[in-house]
Computed example of a mutant assay.
Amino acid sequence: MNLKINSRHVEVTPGMREHLEAGFAKIRKHFDHVIDASAFLIVDKAKEKDLRQTAEITIHLKGKELFAQAHHSDLYHAMDAVVDKLERQVVKHKEKIQDHHHEKHLD
């Protein structure tokens, strides 16, 4: 899987990259058919402190694209929150695929 990290008003450190890669490892445990992913880390001067740090992630799957966004006062917490959101989306997508392809015939 190819992971691309972009940022605005913040420099992506090796620690940030490792933190995101660890999050993607959790997602890959559930669903291994991820083609590529792109993350966008943003630090803005929002009036509310909780909305200053933003993490956005888009995952490209075969025939589907999943997107999640999270805001927090700490960028690492925002990254954790967005990974958790995507993890739930991936699990839901995987269940839909499995249910669709394996319909049960009731007698």
Rank of each mutant, 00 (worst) to 15 (best):
E11Q: 12
L75W: 00
N2H: 15
D84C: 07
E48T: 13
M79C: 06
H77M: 09
H102L: 07
F31M: 06
A46Y: 11
R28G: 08
E65D: 11
Q69V: 09
Q89E: 07
D107W: 09
K26A: 13
F67K: 14
K49V: 14
H101I: 07
A22F: 07
H19L: 00
K29G: 05
K45I: 09
D74Y: 00
D44W: 03
H71A: 09
E11P: 04
Q69F: 03
K64C: 02
D99M: 12
S38C: 03
K4C: 14
V43I: 09
K92I: 09
A78K: 01
H19I: 01
K96P: 02
H30D: 11
M1V: 12
K92Y: 08
K62P: 02
D36K: 13
L66Q: 10
K92G: 12
L61M: 08
A68S: 10
V90D: 03
Q89I: 03
V10T: 15
S38T: 06
Q98M: 10
V10P: 06
T58R: 06
D36G: 15
A78R: 05
K4D: 15
E11N: 13
G23C: 03
H72M: 00
A68D: 01
L106F: 14
E11F: 03
K64V: 07
V34I: 15
S73K: 12
F31L: 11
D84F: 05
L66R: 04
H77N: 12
D44S: 05
D50H: 09
D84A: 10
I57T: 02
I5Q: 10
A81C: 06
A25K: 14
S7Y: 03
E11Y: 04
V43D: 03
A46S: 13
H105V: 13
H101M: 10
S73P: 01
M16V: 12
S7I: 04
H105Q: 11
A22L: 12
F40L: 12
V43C: 02
H72N: 06
R28P: 06
I42A: 07
L3R: 02
H93N: 12
K45E: 15
E95C: 04
H100N: 11
I5H: 08
M16D: 06
K26H: 14
I42M: 04
I35E: 11
H72R: 05
G63P: 04
E95S: 07
A81E: 03
H71I: 02
M79K: 02
D80C: 06
R28T: 13
V12R: 07
H102D: 06
E48K: 14
V90L: 05
L106N: 14
S38F: 03
Q53A: 04
D99T: 13
S38K: 08
F67Y: 11
F40R: 09
S38I: 07
